[in-house]
Write a protein that binds this DNA or RNA. Structure first.
Length: 414
DNA sequence: TGTCCACAGGAAATACGGGGGT
DNA sequence: ACCCCCGTATTTCCTGTGGACA
């Protein structure tokens, strides 16, 4: 057979077995606002998040009557659609207000990465075009004044959508105090603040003096169930994938796994996407087995990505603990781990921390899920935390290698 | 019943780095 | 050049504690 024919046949075969037709629809980051809204509209059109949208409507209805709604707090885990629903809703509301000649504007302050109070205020000021971007060096008061100045003489409704409010580390109180006490007094705008949080009780930890000022309504976003996830995934599949290459039941399986483990739409789409990728690179259809492989791969990548982006000290602590755990079947205790960490630091020329600081690193590793920590009292033999490592062997080996690479040490240290 | 282990974990202090106004 | 401001990382200092053991 002539070589041209071979190539052509090969290409046609590949084309026929292509799974991902339009990668962009598997990753919201790559879609622009307009396309995102289009996808969202389709999702809402099949009655997903119906209750939440109805509640939002009734919360904001007073605006159309020239009345003042109280603030709003959207609660729910990550990936339950708090942000997208709200953005979509605000967009609609904006259009509605436009029709009725009601002055309304909204701003989305995204705190999805943790920031101190200063940074949050600065971001807000930038969004309002009230100040330039500072890194540091300017007092909080000045920033607040700039924002006030900017908003002073404006009229109408001002909806401030603050995403992930609990990510304001340190001094959340003064941030809120400014927003709910000081700001409304210095402006003629009617301010309505919408908070988002994945901690159901974030309001309970704030300064009572601020809290008393903060009248909020709450809307709870439940994790998606399998039925909703199926609808959401189906829309993505239609847009992005070659459906012929999806074996029967795969969609249901992904929906079921996702609703069972987290109910997070973004993660569900990620699993779909990963499965398609794997199947495509193997040249097979997306089968149930492929989904399992994808699940494992996502899990592993999660750990690796986390430790790679973590501070050096945390990496060292993790290495020491994993290495210790490999040599002993019993749970570890802090003191021994600290010794291991200490000598590891010496080997890689890292300044070692005190045990107090190390103890915090251990808690952090626990939060991230690398290790499990349990406080156990041994009577006169002390009160201590027992450390266990439950990572699958391949992952812990991989993590050790990653850490060593981070320290520029190729060869294994015994 | 009191002691005392081996830490946990909170609070405050300190060190350090770097930006901004003047 | 000087002083002020802020953030982060750590250290220092500290009080608290469940229960085995004497």
């Amino acid at each position: 057979m002539r070589v041209e024919n071979k190539i052509e046949r090969q290409m046609r075969h590949l084309l026929k077995n292509t799974i991902i037709l339009n990668r962009r629809f598997l990753d919201d980051e790559q879609l622009d606002r307009k396309e995102q809204f289009k996808v969202l509209k389709e999702i809402f059109d099949v009655d997903v998040r119906d209750r939440e949208i109805r509640e939002l409507s009734s919360h904001f209805a007073p605006i159309l009557r020239n009345d003042h709604p109280v603030h709003l707090s959207l609660l729910g885990k990550t990936g339950t659609g708090k942000t997208v629903t709200m953005l979509y809703f605000l967009n609609m509301l904006q259009a509605l207000c436009g029709k009725k000649n009601i002055l309304m504007k909204h701003i989305h302050l995204d705190l999805s990465t943790p920031k101190p109070c200063f940074r949050a205020l600065n971001d807000l000021a930038c969004l309002l075009d009230a100040s330039k971007r500072y890194k540091k060096g300017i007092s909080l008061d000045e920033l607040m004044s700039k924002i006030e100045e900017r908003l002073k003489d404006q009229q109408g409704y001002f909806i401030l959508f603050i995403d992930e409010i609990d990510h304001v580390r340190r001094d959340l109180d003064s941030f809120l105090k400014f927003l709910v006490k000081r700001l409304p007094q210095t402006t003629t705008l009617r301010v309505v603040i919408v908070f988002t949080s994945n901690k159901l009780n974030w309001l309970e930890n704030i300064d009572p003096r601020v809290k008393s000022f903060l009248k909020v309504n709450e809307i709870l976003f439940d994790p998606y169930n399998a039925v909703d996830l199926r609808k959401i995934l189906l829309i993505r599949i239609k847009k992005a994938l070659n459906r012929k290459m999806l074996r029967k039941g795969v969609l249901e399986k992904i929906a079921a796994i996702s609703s069972r483990t987290h109910g997070d739409a973004r993660k569900a789409v990620e699993l779909l996407s990963k499965s398609a990728q794997i199947a495509e690179s193997q040249g097979t259809a997306v089968t149930m087995d492929v989904v399992d492989v994808a699940l494992e791969e996502i899990e592993r990548d999660k750990y690796v990505a986390m430790i790679k982006s973590a501070p050096k000290q945390l990496q060292a602590a993790l290495y020491a603990i994993i290495a210790m755990a490999a040599n002993s079947k019993k749970p570890l205790q802090i003191g021994d781990c600290y010794q291991a960490y200490y000598s590891f630091c010496a080997k890689v020329k890292l300044r070692s921390l005190t045990q107090r600081a190390f103890s915090d690193l251990v808690s952090e590793l626990d939060i991230y899920g690398f290790i499990q920590v349990r406080i156990v009292s041994q009577g006169r033999y002390g009160r201590r935390r027992e450390i266990t490592v439950n990572l699958p062997l391949d992952i812990s080996e991989k993590l050790k290698r990653v850490v060593l690479m981070e320290f520029d040490i190729g060869e294994l240290i015994s």
